[in-house]
Write a protein that binds this DNA or RNA. Structure first.
Length: 569
RNA sequence: CGGGGUGUGGCGCAGCCUGGCAGCGCGCCUGCUUUGGGAGCAGGAUGUCGGGAGUUCGAAUCUCCCCACCCCGACCA
């Protein structure tokens, strides 16, 4: 491609709306333009990146034996009524109506449609297994779209669905997809981690997420360097402390702590480590007022809370409810002397002695609090906190580390959730009708662009991994328009590289060198060759990888071979 | 949805408090010079100041209503 024939839309300054690095750079580099909240046009440069990602995903899905289909974006409501999700999926779903006032939705995911295909077409176990996938635009009416295409309302997703005669075969395919996803993200050139996950609203049993590792990631993931344990923090189990609860060693005392409403403040005032304090969180759970206790330096894990028997559904208590049940404002709550409130202690808290907590009296805390002596044993002891760096790994080997990631893939074992709801059955070898076992596998294609940039950028712009760069390499001639020798050499190099199968961009715009360099750095072209009068006199061109600090001369005659070798590594 | 904020030329912003010629930087167009890291000089174009209503001799500026967008909290690839 010649840049004079292409459409660049680079910006010196990013529009004010963009906060995160990837969003700013995508706008600045002219990959995308915003049309409305969570709605983006993919400009020619950005679409090249999307297409490259799609091609790799398609290749690997096909290699794994999945078959590509294309389902409608607009789905009749009946199918979703049948599965029970017309109401259950909620306001995230864009409902639309046609001229006959019939209800439709713009598909946020396609379990219903694909299950409908399966129940119509699959009759015998001989037709199984079957794996259908598509790469298609989805719409989810996010409450708050943000970070550009990272959390857009309209986005492109690869969604695949597999059908099996029995669970063993589903497990086989699930493992195969796990491996396929690992291949895909490796080929894309991304640093990623696969973690055990919560199936969430899609439903089913087993589930893994694939995260691109990035400091700015929205998800926290826990993994163990000494074992293969890795899980989303939502799911990662915090084990009970190994040591038994120490015997009480201090008397119960009430101390004034005016204005100290956080555990950190109280610990600082009293001169005790924050690990001796207990934080109380008030909920209304299962229709009852409940006080949840976690150690002062820990945080509550709402996903885990929702799974504790008797607590779901729950919501945080209002200040009025808190005052009514405890007699104190938030900041001074504690489990001592609470009549009928349900006390739920995290495992760590249940093993603490001589701890500090609120006194249920404004401006006061209690010290030297002990279970059994100063208050009854907690009604429920459960794992309700997020794991922290250094916690023991749940598999008993080593200690956990916490990293941040961006979820770009998710695989689920749906089992028979949809096939039963929609009567998708097949006849087994005994002639017995059985529900089809299903798996489901998603990849956020457009999100990958943002995630890749989030993981790979510097102060000058994007540093695309080679596999997804809009162009693999660029030729920057110095003085293309005014120097015939440079022009001829650059044109020849361009033809030779293109003939060698390199996806190369020739920067033949009539701009000063600085502008061309800045643009090439901004849009993240991985390899650069500079053709100049100076170099030609010495028989060389200058090579520089996007991450290199400076360039190096390469004999002009062997530039093609040199670059091909660079591209191969 | 709740809380906070912003809408002024393509982008980034000032002007608003205290009403009185709509401005700055970048970008864009023309010419000359320059030419290996976002050039210099000269000339030029581009605005229903988000929309509507009101107050006023006069509104970007004050009042009210509406719209859009952004940021912080609960959902997800």
């Amino acid at each position: 491609m010649r840049s004079s024939k292409f459409f660049f839309a680079t910006l010196k300054e990013a529009p004010a709306e963009a906060e995160v690095a990837s969003h700013r750079l995508m706008l600045r580099a002219g990959l995308i333009r915003r049309l409305g909240a969570g709605l983006y046009t993919w400009m020619p440069l950005g679409l090249r990146v999307v297409r490259k990602i799609e091609a790799i995903v398609r290749e690997e899905m096909n290699r794994a034996g999945a078959l590509e289909v294309l389902m409608p974006c607009v789905i009749p409501a009946e199918l979703w009524v049948e599965s029970g999700r017309w109401d259950a999926f909620g306001p995230q779903m864009l409902k639309i109506r046609d001229r006959h006032q019939r209800d439709f939705l713009f598909g946020p995911t396609h379990e219903e449609v694909v299950t409908d295909i399966a129940r119509r077409e699959v009759r015998s176990y001989r037709q199984l297994p079957l794996h259908l996938y598509q790469i298609q635009t989805k719409f989810r009416d996010e409450i708050r779209p943000r970070f550009g295409v990272m959390r857009a309302r309209e986005f492109v997703m690869k969604d695949g669905y597999s059908f099996h005669a029995d669970y063993a075969d589903l497990e086989r395919e699930y493992r195969a997809m796990y491996d396929t996803y690992a291949r895909i993200f490796t080929r894309l050139g991304l640093r990623f981690r696969a973690v055990a996950a919560d199936p969430g609203a899609i439903g089913g049993t087993g589930s893994h997420e694939f995260h691109v590792l990035a400091e700015s990631g929205e998800d926290a993931i826990a993994w163990c360097p000494d074992s293969d344990y890795a899980a989303n923090v939502e799911l990662a189990e915090a084990l009970a402390p190994a040591a038994p609860r120490p015997a009480p060693g201090a008397p119960l005392a009430q101390v004034p702590t005016p204005g100290r409403e956080t555990c950190a403040d109280v610990a600082a005032l009293l001169g005790v480590p924050i690990e001796r304090t207990v934080k109380s969180i008030a909920l209304v759970a299962g229709g009852r007022f409940a006080l949840l206790l976690v150690r002062g330096d820990h945080t509550l894990n709402e996903t885990k809370v929702a799974k504790v028997p008797g607590l779901a559904p729950f919501r945080f208590a209002t200040e009025e409810e808190i005052a009514r049940h405890t007699g104190a404002p938030p900041g001074y709550l504690g489990p001592v002397g609470l009549g009928e409130a349900l006390v739920v202690a995290d495992r760590t808290v249940a093993a603490m002695a001589d701890f500090v907590c609120g006194a249920n009296k404004e401006g006061f805390h209690l010290t030297g609090v002990n279970w059994g002596r100063d208050l009854p044993e907690p009604a429920i002891v459960a794992d309700i906190r997020n794991v922290v760096d250094g916690d023991p790994s749940p598999d008993g080997r080593g200690r956990l580390r916490i990293e941040r990631g961006i979820e770009v893939g998710h695989i689920f074992q749906l089992r028979t959730k949809y096939s039963e709801a929609m009567q998708a059955t097949f006849l087994d070898e005994h002639g017995v009708a059985r529900p089809i076992e299903m798996g489901c596998y998603g990849i956020g294609i457009t999100r990958i662009v943002a995630a890749a940039i989030e993981q790979n950028h510097d102060e000058r712009g994007i540093v695309f991994p080679r596999a997804i760069a809009p162009f693999e390499a660029c030729i920057v001639p110095i003085g293309y328009a005014r120097n015939p020798a440079v022009r001829e050499a650059a044109d020849r190099l361009y033809r030779d590289l293109a003939a060698a199968g390199v996806d190369v961009l020739l920067e033949d715009r009539e701009e000063r060198a600085g502008v061309l360099f800045a643009d090439m750095d901004l849009i993240g072209i991985p390899h650069r060759l500079v053709v100049s009068e100076r170099g030609l006199a010495a028989g060389t061109v200058e090579y520089k990888a996007r991450r290199d600090a400076s360039g190096q001369p390469v004999p002009a005659a062997s530039a093609v071979a040199f670059l091909r070798e660079r591209l191969a590594t």
